[in-house]
């Protein structure tokens, strides 16, 4: 494999530096989650880290939340979860479907156009989310639109486009025109050449894009906060009312539960798209 990037043997300072920095990166990413996961198994309500006794009691509480739902609350956790899943699915599929042809077109067209478009599609990332949330709400209200679930899905699609496009583009970069030309010279129509040759080669980038879209939409809070209604609400909104009130171990257990759901979704998408554990 790519021996040159990370030498398997020898490599001296280079290998050491790469591994050292990667370890720091992993620690920064995962330490808070590890701590929170450990705390969620704490037996007592007030305890310092690390806890001295462990139990599953907070997880039982989470299970109860899902089973004995209080019907008087507008935001039933089950409904919110389903809405979140549906929105995330729509956002994932739509954003990826629109980004694949765009990434292809950008990679195959001239540089100026490409840079301009990349910038345009980075914009959703640059906007402060609070401002965006309120702008979307003001527009939706002034147009008097009855959008249902799309109230949330449309802004989400805009938010994930930069991520999906970047990932598709970076995958497109490595695919040379010759491969396509070869397919065409063998008798494939240009669209077929794209679909049968280029898209499979982009798979890694597409997959990364899909996963980003899924995760970002499923966990988006700020814009959703402005757009949700009493009838269409998502899991992060529901979760918010819990975390604001207290960071008790049940909340932590619920967070761990949400992580598990996310990981499950990520692995599922990976399995479905990539086939036999090919990537990610």
């Amino acid at each position: 494999m790519r021996v040159g990037l990370l030498p398997t043997e020898g490599g001296g300072t280079y290998r050491f530096a790469i591994l050292f920095l990667a370890t720091i990166g992993i620690l920064i990413s995962s330490l808070p989650v590890i701590v929170v996961t450990i705390m969620s198994f704490s037996a007592s309500e007030y305890s310092s880290f690390p806890p001295t006794e462990f139990s599953f009691r907070w997880y039982l509480e989470v299970v109860q939340l899902f089973t004995n739902e209080d019907p008087s609350s507008a935001q039933s956790v089950v409904d919110s979860t389903l809405t979140s899943l549906l929105v995330a699915f729509l956002v994932m599929v739509i954003s990826t479907l629109v980004c694949i042809p765009l990434a292809y077109a950008l990679a195959r067209s001239n540089r100026n156009l490409r840079e301009g478009m990349e910038l345009l599609f980075t914009l959703p990332l640059v906007f402060p989310l609070v401002m965006l949330g309120i702008a979307f709400l003001l527009i939706a209200e002034s147009l008097q639109l009855e959008l249902g679930i799309w109230r949330i899905a449309i802004p989400h699609i805009a938010l994930v486009l930069p991520f999906v496009l970047r990932n598709c583009l970076s995958a497109m970069n490595g695919i040379s025109v010759e491969i396509e030309e070869a397919a065409i010279s063998l008798g494939a129509s240009p669209p077929r050449a794209i679909w049968d040759v280029v898209v499979p080669l982009m798979k890694a980038g597409i997959l990364a894009g899909l996963i980003f879209a899924l995760i970002i939409s499923f966990n988006e809070f700020t814009v959703t906060f402005f757009m949700y209604t009493i009838d269409v609400s998502t899991l992060p909104i529901w979760m918010y009312s819990r975390t604001v009130s207290s960071l008790d171990p049940a909340t932590l257990a619920l967070s761990v539960f949400i992580i598990v759901v996310d990981v499950f979704l990520v692995v599922l998408v990976d399995k479905l798209i990539a086939g036999r554990g090919n990537l990610f």
Partner: peptide, 17 residues
């Protein structure tokens, strides 16, 4: 997954961590 974790976990809970 461990690299993706920061995107998943509620920031309030991460800050607590």
């Amino acid at each position: 997954i461990s690299i993706l974790l920061p995107l998943i976990l509620n920031l309030l809970v991460q800050a607590y961590g």
